[in-house]
Computed example of a mutant assay.
Amino acid sequence: MSTSADTPHLPPRRAPAAAVAGLIADCLAAAGLARADAETVAALMAEADLTGADGHGVFRLPQYVRRLRAGGFNRAPAITVTRTAPATALVDGDNAMGHLVVRRAAETAIDIARETGVAWVGVRRSNHAGSAGLYAEMPTHHGMVGIYSAVASANHMAVWGGKDLLLGTNPLAIAVPTGAGPMVLDMATTVVSYGTVKKHTLQGLPLPDGWLVDRDTGEPITDPAKSANGLLLPIGGYKGAGLSLMLGLLAGVLNGAAFGRDCVDFNADDVTVTDTGQFVAAIDIDRFVGRDRFVAEIDRHLADLRASARLPGVDAIRLPGDRRRDCRAERSAAGIPVPAALVAALDGVAAELGVTPLFGR
C-alpha cells in the first residue's frame, strides 16, 4: 500500500457513490467472493462513506482484499441462524465477511421483533463489519428502535490503569426513527476509532493530543508512525473503559465469541479466524406508545433541544446523527472524498486484480 510519503498532500478527489460501490464489488469478486455477496458488502461500505464513517468504507478495501486472498475470510460461508427462544437467536457467521453476518443478524432481529415485540440476536464466528450505525439503523425503517454493539476486531485499549491490550474500541450504536429520518448515535468507547488513527497514518497527519498514549511511558503520542505502540484512551476515563468491558462481554462472551486476550488483531494477521462477536437488538415501537406518537414526541423534544440557549461560542446545537444526515446529503450530491494517498492505494489494488480503477469509472 502506498503511503503519504509517496503521495503529495493534494485535496481529496470526489467519486460518485456508485463508482465507489462498483470498485469495491469488482475487487471483492476478483478476490474470490461470490458476486452477490461482494455487492452486498460493497453497498454497506459505500453507505459508510456516504454517512461520513470514512474509516469503515472504501478505506478498508485493500485490507479486506488482502485477507480474502490469504484465506482469512471464508469466501463461501454457510451462515446459520438458530432460534434459541421466542425473542432470541444466535447467528453463526462461519467466518464470513462481517457485513454479511451482521446484516443477517439485523434482518433476523427485525423479523423476530415483528412477532414478539423485542428481539436480541447474538453473533459469533463473524468478522469486522464496518460502521456500527449501519446495523442499528436497519430496524428504524420498520418502525423499530435498533441497537448494535461488537467486540472490536483488534484490542487497542487497556483496562483502566493497565497497559496490556485487552479491550477494544467496542462500539455502541442506537437508532430511533424521527420525522426527518433515523437519528443514529454511533460511537466508539475510545476517544476515537482505530480506523481514524489508520486514516491519519496513511495520510501522514499528526494525531491530536488525547487520542493515544505510549504503552511504556504513558506520554501522549502525536506521531502517527508511533501509533502501533500506543493505547487508545477511553471516553470519559474509567467510565469508557467500563463500557467497553461490558459491551465486550455481551457481544463476545455471551455469544461464545472471542474477547480479551483471545481476540485476533486482524490488522496484523490476515489468516487466523477472528471469531468476532456482535449483537443486534430490535424493539417494535408499536408495542409501547405506537410509532406515530413516538415519532411526534421525539420530534417535539428534539425541537426543544435545538432551541435551547447556547453557551458562548456555540453556533448551533448539534444532536446525534445530524452530521451523519448532512454528510450523506452532501456526498450524495458532490461525491465521496477520497484522499490522494488512498487513491494511490486503491489504484494499486485495482491494477493487481485487473479491475477498472476508481477514477476510470
Rank of each mutant, 00 (worst) to 15 (best):
S4K: 10
T7W: 00
H9Y: 03
A15E: 05
I24S: 13
I24V: 15
A31Y: 00
D37E: 11
E39Q: 13
T40D: 14
M45T: 08
D49L: 04
G57E: 05
G57C: 05
F59R: 04
R60L: 13
V65G: 05
T80I: 02
T84M: 05
A85D: 12
V91A: 10
G93W: 03
A96Q: 03
M97W: 00
R104W: 02
E107V: 05
T108R: 07
T108C: 12
I112Y: 06
T116H: 13
G117K: 03
A119P: 06
V123A: 06
S131V: 11
S131M: 15
E137Y: 00
G143F: 01
I147F: 12
L165E: 04
L166G: 02
P171S: 09
V176F: 08
A180E: 13
A180Q: 14
G181Q: 10
G181V: 09
P182M: 04
G195F: 11
K198T: 06
H200R: 15
Q203S: 13
P206A: 06
L207M: 11
L212S: 01
D216R: 07
D216Y: 01
G218S: 00
P220Y: 04
A228M: 07
L232H: 06
G236R: 09
L243T: 09
G252T: 09
N255Q: 12
G260W: 05
F266W: 14
D269R: 04
T274G: 06
D275V: 08
A282M: 07
I285N: 10
I285M: 10
R293M: 05
R300Y: 05
R318D: 08
G321S: 08
G321L: 10
R328A: 15
E330L: 14
A333D: 12
G335E: 03
P339F: 04
V355F: 08
F359P: 06
F359H: 13
R361V: 04
